[in-house]
Every structure is written in structure tokens, then in C-alpha cells.
Design a protein around this nucleic acid. Sequence first.
DNA 1: ATGGTTGGGGTCCAA
Length: 278
Amino acid sequence: MRLRLATWNINSVRLRLPLVTQFLDSLQPDVLCLQEIKCRDAEFPTSELRKRGYVHIATHGQKGYHGVAIVSRLPFHEIRRRDFCAKGDARHISVAFDAGAADASGIVLHNFYVPAGGDEPDVEINPKFGHKLDFLDELALWTAEENIAGERAILVGDLNIAPLETDVWNHKALLKVVSHTPIEVEKFTKVFNSGPWVDAMRRIVGTEEKLYTWWSYRSPNWELADKGRRLDHIWLSKKLAPSLVGMQVLREARGWLRTSDHVPVLVDLDLGQSAAPP
DNA sequence: ATGGTTGGGGTCCAA
């Protein structure tokens, strides 16, 4: 069984619903994880997505800011929503695919929207940066305690950190820019090492190659200047990693009319292979 | 070094 999974920071799902449906129609993912839906659960465009076959929908929304959702053709259960840092922020949702999802059964999927962290990488003058670091600390502890990378697990989302030198357009220029500072990369790495995770994107595109998923709205000529960062990630547990058969960053989506500043990232898994011995 | 754009909700905050 093939499973196509996508993640996309949509930056207002209601405003960009036509782009979401265009994306679903053309790329045909089985599961789409969204971040920054920027609406309450009741305002999520559930009926429009159900009409297109994505009948299984779980949301963790709030008014105006943040918010995550999982939109799926495959049935799931055990929907969980954790309030990291106990601020009432909607930044996490997870589901487990059930028996009706055939070979996807037993896979737990976590969808995150990590705080952006504000402009100044200094906790003394910028509480938002402190919040981001605290969020990562709590995430590392929790992922280890809960063993969320256990057996068959996937972690996706806008993690708002570009960890590698080739994840940003200019490593040196961005060392003091929030998203690429050493302290953030250190904490990001701790989260990654809290479980047996594999970076699916870098399994397909080598670390010597530049790879971005986000281009600022503030930079004109995004395509020509190409001042991007890889802020969005897909991690597979070691057990699932052998099933990875494809990955794409849908760079063209950044050129769509009135689009998000993030583009979708997709992976293809051949779950028939995941049962094979190592 | 600076300033640039977008979205939501409401006359500014977050990204």
C-alpha cells in the first residue's frame, strides 16, 4: 500500500481554501497536515474538504492565530491535542490510523506548529524567543517520555527552525536570525535525538544541496533572490524509514496567486516494505 | 544596517 502524506503551513485555511482544494486535486495526498489554519474548529472548511473525499478531519484551532489540522482519506482514531507551555495555544494535534486504513494501521502521526520566536534572539528582551526555546525543551522531554518515535510514527510540521547550513540561503548571515541561531539548532537537535527519527527530506536530498520550504513575503523576487529557509519538516521513525520511496517540495506553490509563504512538502511511503525485517 | 509583506481582527499583533 502506498501512502502519500503532505504538510503545509497554509497561513489562513479559509482564505486559501481554493489553493488547498487545487493542491488536493492535483497532488492527491492521502493525508494533509496543515498549520496556521487561523480559525476556530467550527470555522474549519470541513464540508468542502469532505466533498473531495477527505472525510476524516481533526482540528485543533483557535481564533485568529496558530491552529493545526489533519485532513485524511484514511480513517483514524485517538485524536490528541496537547497544550505545550500551557498557554492555550493550538500548536499540536496527533492521530493514529486505524484498521480501516489497511497497512497504515498502527501509524501515529503528530502535526506541530512550533512558535516562530519573534525577531530578537534574546530571551531577556524578547519573551517570544523564550517561549520558542521553552516549547522545544518541553517537546524534547515529552517526545522521549511518550516514546512518540516508537514503532511506526511520523512527526511533521512547521518547526520554524532551519537546522543545517544548507537549509538557509546564507548560513553566516543568518546565525543571529531567529530560526537559524545555534541555541535553536541545539534544541531542535535534542528533539530530533529524543527518538529514533529519520529526516525524510534529507534522506532524498543530500545535505550538500540547498533545500527550502519558506520564502518571506517581504523579499521581492522570491524566486530570483531565492532567500529561502527549510522550516518545514517530515520525520519518520526508524521502523518507517525503509518505506520512504519519494519526497517533493512543491516549490511552484510559492508562485501561486495569493499563496502562503510556505510550500507543501510531500512524502511517498510504500508500506508494503515496512514489514520487512531490517 | 535597514526595511520589506501578509493575515486576522478591529484601529495593532504575529509572523
